[in-house]
Amino acid sequence: MPELPEVETTCRGIAPHIQGRTITAVQVRDGRLRWPVPTNLAELLIGVAVQSVSRRGKYLLLHTAAGTLLVHLGMSGSLRIVSSEVEPAKHDHIDLVFGEDTVLRFNDPRRFGAMLWTDQPAEAHSLLKDLGPEPLLADFNGMLLYQVSRQRKVPVKTFIMDSHVVVGVGNIYANEALFMAGLLPARHAGTIALADYETLADCIREVLQQAITQGGTTLRNFVNETGKPGYFKQQLKVYGRGGSPCLRCGQDLLEIRLANRTTVFCQACQR
């Protein structure tokens, strides 16, 4: 599943191609996504200019004077900038056309993604209004994690993956941040001290920023806006390395299922 760095990479990649440009055509080949694509999407968007592109959690937001298009990549989705001459592939469900030379193409083999419209403030949308803070912004810090975690008995890995606590910390980056912070993923969130949460908040920010800088994690179903894979997977310290030697101490990394998610950690380096 594309995680925050992949979505941020896509946001930064598509923005220069479509900001300030007017949508001249919309083609919906298959609107059966996680939620049905609005049947009047073309009517809503044709003739409208994209003023800006931003990200909230794992949602991409295309802002216009008339409203906001919310895009979620789901489990396997991607957005690519292609020429209008490029023929659509099997799972290329939606095209937003910008003149004769630029198409924003939405591909989603599993159709778990979404493309929705709101003419209200985007932050008030039901999918966005209850989201936690952005991990790369100043209002996310260790004190916030510490305060929200009191009396919580869930594993700290599950806690930081809760989008109501902080957005965008998916499974891969939760594994990596906890390793960097030296915290066992199964520890109860409410037992962790403020100083450790301050370290963890810094590690979450660092891991995500590194991934964004390097273009997102290379997953089987993820490509960036030009069709090229991200490169951060080469830098992963624990995720996908269960049974391999820890890069710090050499002890074999353990792999377990925690809250039904693959969880990899070092029993010696994490406490």
Rank of each mutant, 00 (worst) to 15 (best):
A174T: 13
K228T: 15
M143V: 12
A181D: 02
V7I: 14
P5R: 03
A174V: 06
P16Y: 13
D95G: 11
L73E: 07
R248F: 11
V86G: 01
Y173R: 06
G215Q: 08
P88G: 09
G13C: 05
F98Q: 04
M143W: 07
G67W: 03
T213E: 12
L69Q: 03
R271H: 15
I81F: 04
V48H: 00
A177R: 05
F265A: 09
R248G: 02
A174E: 09
P38L: 13
L253S: 14
T263M: 13
S83F: 06
K90Y: 10
A42E: 12
S83Q: 09
Q267D: 15
T68Y: 00
E3P: 09
Q235G: 01
E3F: 02
R150K: 15
G182I: 11
E255D: 12
D101I: 01
P133C: 07
A195Q: 14
K90E: 11
T9N: 06
N260T: 11
L200T: 03
L44K: 14
A89C: 10
V238I: 03
V154R: 02
A124P: 00
G227W: 00
L253T: 07
V50A: 01
V97C: 15
G168C: 12
T262Q: 13
L70F: 05
L62W: 12
P5H: 05
R187F: 02
V71L: 10
N171G: 13
G227Y: 03
E206H: 09
H72G: 05
P2V: 02
C266A: 12
H72V: 07
D108Q: 05
V53H: 02
E176Q: 11
V223S: 03
A114Y: 00
Y173G: 01
P2F: 10
S52Q: 09
Q214F: 11
L219V: 07
V207W: 07
N141P: 04
L184C: 13
Q27G: 00
Q214K: 12
V103S: 11
I204T: 06
F106H: 09
V50N: 09
Q214G: 13
Q210G: 04
L61E: 07
R32H: 14
T263P: 13
D30R: 10
G168T: 11
L208C: 02
I204A: 01
T217Q: 01
L184R: 15
S78K: 13
N260K: 10
R55T: 03
E225P: 00
A122R: 00
N224G: 06
P5I: 11
G182L: 04
Q234M: 06
G47D: 08
I81G: 01
G230Q: 02
L41V: 12
Y197F: 15
P135A: 06
N221L: 13
A201P: 02
F106T: 04
T102H: 02
P229A: 01
R32T: 09
M180A: 15
V50R: 02
I46R: 15
I81R: 00
R29F: 03
N260C: 05
G250H: 09
G230W: 08
R56M: 12
P16E: 13
E255P: 03
Q270W: 06
I14M: 09
R152D: 14
S76E: 08
